[in-house]
Design a protein around this nucleic acid. Sequence first.
DNA 1: ACCGAATGAGACATCATTGTCTCATTGGTT
DNA 2: AACCAATGAGACAATGATGTCTCATTCGGT
Lengths: 192, 192
Amino acid sequence: MSHSVNLCLMAVDRQHVLKQAAALLTRRATTPMDEIARAAGISRATLHRHFAGRDALIRALEDLGIEQFTQAMDAARLDEGNAADALRRLIAEAEPVAGVLAFLFTENQLFESGEINAGWALLDDRITALFRRGQEQGDFRIDLSSAWLTEAFYGLIGAGAWAVHEGRVARNDLNHSIAELLLGGIRRSMEK
Amino acid sequence: MSHSVNLCLMAVDRQHVLKQAAALLTRRATTPMDEIARAAGISRATLHRHFAGRDALIRALEDLGIEQFTQAMDAARLDEGNAADALRRLIAEAEPVAGVLAFLFTENQLFESGEINAGWALLDDRITALFRRGQEQGDFRIDLSSAWLTEAFYGLIGAGAWAVHEGRVARNDLNHSIAELLLGGIRRSMEK
DNA sequence: ACCGAATGAGACATCATTGTCTCATTGGTT
DNA sequence: AACCAATGAGACAATGATGTCTCATTCGGT
């Protein structure tokens, strides 16, 4: 009578598979399942055993991204301190999962079905709120809408993840590169 | 005996078709040909008459993007004046074709075949050179690599085009939004 | 009004991918 | 050693997109 705890060994690491899938799908949204499987080091059959199908894989990827991004935002404590520091914390927390996030930003295709859209809208609101807070408290400029700042944030995260993936930017620099550019811009400032 | 000049009336506007295709393909890379045709207001048959196939369409899109971007850079006279103004001019010139550019940035899939890669690398170098010039002349900060600034530029153009397409940013604001954010960053600066 | 080019609508075979299946093999556990 | 779960390899039909074709229609210029 096995009161075994059903440890569910699952040699296959879902997280790892999803990360590989994100890398490939960000690069080419039509990447076939067998390529994804190969990249993850498993067979196509096993891939299908863990994810009911392509749609389920994409869905899992979205869920993972939303979950990780949510955790990043929670960890960043966006409401505390001044907005600029909060934004720095957010970038620092989001940087490790930038790859999956980059996929989310580009894979706008499924954001039509309300369910995921809702989950994403929540995150969207939190970031927009952060930018608005910064504007209201005089830290951020007000001639750029908070909606645009949010989009720009996404764009830079995505560009950064891609640049790292392509070896054009060192992973160690990513955090600093995104935060500094977003906060201070390109121009050399005297006050510093 | 018609010494007609073969004006080739071609009621179909290739440019228009390509723009529609860019919008759809940026949104969803797997968009079927019939959807693209419908969006362009023509039949699938006609679409195939003008572009040998899906690959040819993508290829034409890339060529168009590279051509338009090249023109934008030429018009912006990147070598003249200070780098910041040159960057402003580039953004202003590139903004009208941001949609096609956004497609180019995200459709990294075909950058593998050397031919297009070469054409793109040329543009890449010119932008990178602009940022480097700005750094050497003391206008741009040097703690961010010119490679990263280039990637960030792409990312913001893409994010901007997308934001406009989604109605989150007014087309009229796009130019200002991108240039100001890129040059000055989010933070409110005193010197102004 | 005429004529030819361009188009739209639809049929059709082809192809790649997908999802499901079976069977043999591996690897860890008892 | 025996066992069971997980996996890999491959076959298979179903599906959807693609590319090509034909034929009727529309449009512009003569």
